[in-house]
Design a protein around this nucleic acid. Sequence first.
DNA 1: GTCAGCAATGTGACCGTTCACATTTTGGCG
DNA 2: CGCCAAAATGTGAACGGTCACATTGCTGAC
Lengths: 355, 355
Amino acid sequence: MRLQNVTVHISSGVIVSNNLATGRTPSIRDVARLAGVSHQTVSRVLNSHPSIRESTRLRVQQVIDELHYRPSRAARALVRGQSRTIGVLSALSAEYGPASSIAAIQDAARDAGYFVNTANLSRGEPASIQAAVDHLMYQSVEGIVVIAPQVRVIEAIEKLAITVPYVTLQSTSGAGEHALSVDQIAGARLATRHLIDLGHRNIYHLAGPQDWIEAEARMRGFLAEMGANDVPTTAPILGDWTADFGYYAGREMLRVRDFTAIFSSNDQMALGLMHAIRDAGLNIPRDVSIVGFDDIPEAAHFWPPLTTVRQDFAELGRRCVALLLANITGDTNDASSTPLLPELVVRLSTAAPAW
Amino acid sequence: MRLQNVTVHISSGVIVSNNLATGRTPSIRDVARLAGVSHQTVSRVLNSHPSIRESTRLRVQQVIDELHYRPSRAARALVRGQSRTIGVLSALSAEYGPASSIAAIQDAARDAGYFVNTANLSRGEPASIQAAVDHLMYQSVEGIVVIAPQVRVIEAIEKLAITVPYVTLQSTSGAGEHALSVDQIAGARLATRHLIDLGHRNIYHLAGPQDWIEAEARMRGFLAEMGANDVPTTAPILGDWTADFGYYAGREMLRVRDFTAIFSSNDQMALGLMHAIRDAGLNIPRDVSIVGFDDIPEAAHFWPPLTTVRQDFAELGRRCVALLLANITGDTNDASSTPLLPELVVRLSTAAPAW
DNA sequence: GTCAGCAATGTGACCGTTCACATTTTGGCG
DNA sequence: CGCCAAAATGTGAACGGTCACATTGCTGAC
């Protein structure tokens, strides 16, 4: 299982077979020697330089294949001064949304010839941000994608005066240059408008954690749409994205049953809400309508199937990489121009109010 | 946003301030010059060599801080011949289980001073495995964690004769040396036994995709427990892990309603099943009992809350890294000794059969 | 007072690639 | 058949660390 090196055969000082004398992994000079050319010619073959005779190219390539030679990434990075690596700074990386984006980022980066290194912020935040960024910088990443759109994380990053370009996913704060996101406000307005159109007037909003930028954006969208339709609002409840919280929040809310609909800031909390509402013996959507956000794959099979706002996490991840690479190479920023719009998916958890 | 280099001030050939003459990022020799020591002394400070006078260490450290000097990872990797990077080969990386494990792997690796590079297998499988492994090998990873426990992936990897240690997560195939997993068979037996104990005799099994090792293990556990209790079985249905499939499978199964319980190979499919069963006007658990597998965070809020088998993905990820690093450094394999056992979580989706 | 021995530091080579530049080969044309 | 530009290839020096070994300074035992 661990045969790291090419086997070696030396007999009376003469190298037998065309393997290397030493047990090292082959280098560009080994290839050169065996192919009867200079190391530089091999380098040119590797980088498909135009002025290489086809016959030479073939001969060198053959030796490369025989030796299973791979150029050393370290040596290349050293002399070129670039690592071809981008970093991802992520919180909640086990959640559906971030995980989907990360997967897409990795694919897109790989297609562009880049490597991806991820650092998580799972543990207690304070120094952890600094540590995570350090980890990435030590890896000499050429750029960073931030998928931890909490205000304090963004602030910390700006304070760190990072020396490489970075892009934040999902943040709708003014910073246009290095922020990319699905329009959360538009999505929240879609959801709210849907409830209003159905005839609801007593609508609660179960929001995400206060310092999450997207939670705040969804809240703003909710309030804006309510205001635009002259529907009075109560203060949103601040949750933590989990189904557990949704459940307990739902139980609290049901003590005073003065609403006919709830717009939840994500699908998990909506699930918890639905659980609490059913526990109370109420029917969804007859007694209470529920709208979620994200459209996780399970949402279509909740009971009842959840009306929610779909956003394309994968596309977001891809655009993010495009924007970041454009920043790195200095190209024009093509990708972020057209905004990414969320979409309302109407299922069975919403209906006109019974009263 | 992109001030890559230290600013430079030169006046009449004399370097003003203690910055570098060139716009380069500082190297170990720059630090040495400014601290009035040799580059080797700086190297020793960096690697906390014991025989360095405290005063010297302090002086060097100060220059390092002033210059914001960071050792070049590329140069270090080049001369040491090691990258301090491990690769993760993953399929379904957006799913809860794999995503949790990946996050834990990253944390554990970071704590051990390693970097993690992930390659996904999302696209069409055939050449993609080779490409993904190539990607990782080119990154010169020192080891690989495989979280794509499909038979063909494992086979492909073994065929590739990878020159670095690798560990497969979740595979219960005999290969003890580089396989680590929660005991899937035991978990499946727990779930099955639970249904049998409740009095069920007509139990279906909705399995995972055929070539997934863990799907096969759960199926084997199911069959073993059924056999041990002399309960006749029908052929398991092979699914694809998604809630959508669970839904359609459920609809098919309900055409002939000859069962009182279903053991689903994961929670998502169980959710789909429950959806289909309710659509048919049946009650869970009165008419049909359902057991899932994984205990995703949402399972507790399904309707009804899902009885399922919990496995500790995070712990699995951590152990995986421990095992891999032990393999890399040649240490004794401490971590994998005690098996990781899954746990039955009984909620409300199971009950004694009504008939 | 000298010298062994260790602590602290310095010197030069080397890792595997690319870069800038030098040199050789090739082919077309007068 | 010689000449010249362009094509093809070669040469040596970086890149920024670490390694092996050399050197210096200091302490203490005889």
